[in-house]
């Protein structure tokens, strides 16, 4: 099964991943609503990488009390079943799950053809 992989030495912190993700999923360039959030910043004299991306660990699916999350080649949230409780978000080790208006939004790798990977200019993000 393919997963997203991140090579930080290639990352330039451009945030294009989050911009294109939100474009495809939200109809706007709005990184705060993206299903991926990779950024860098300087912290105490060091370059810090904040890499929030789905690693398909499945903790969200295990945590869901109403079985709204299925995990196959990618994660899918059944929005009819989802009650927006946030259990998935709490358990997500990469902090990628977003709860908005009582629905959980989780990366689905654009159904196996991730736009973020297509975009990442220095190929820090790969799908393998």
């Amino acid at each position: 099964m393919k997963r997203l992989k991140f090579a930080k030495e290639k990352c330039i912190g451009c945030q294009l991943c989050a911009q294109v993700c939100s474009a495809m999923k939200e109809g706007e360039y709005i990184p705060s609503k993206a299903r991926i959030a990779i950024e860098t910043c300087y912290d105490n004299g060091n370059l810090k990488y904040m890499d929030h991306f789905c690693i398909l660990c499945g903790m969200c699916a295990k945590a869901c009390p109403v079985e709204a999350i299925s995990i196959g080649e990618y994660i899918q949230v059944d929005e009819e079943k989802c009650i927006g409780c946030g259990a998935c978000a709490e358990k997500c080790p990469k902090h990628v799950v977003q709860i908005r208006d009582e629905i959980a939004y989780i990366c689905d790798t654009c159904k196996g053809d991730p736009t973020c990977v297509k975009t990442c200019p220095q190929n820090a993000l790969t799908f393998e």
Binding site: E9, K10, I12, C14, P121
Partner: peptide
């Protein structure tokens, strides 16, 4: 060099930390 950084929406990443 310890890392690379570019601006928001960059593609090239000229910054050398």
């Amino acid at each position: 060099r310890e890392g690379k950084r570019g601006c928001g929406s960059c593609g090239l990443g000229c910054g050398n930390f």
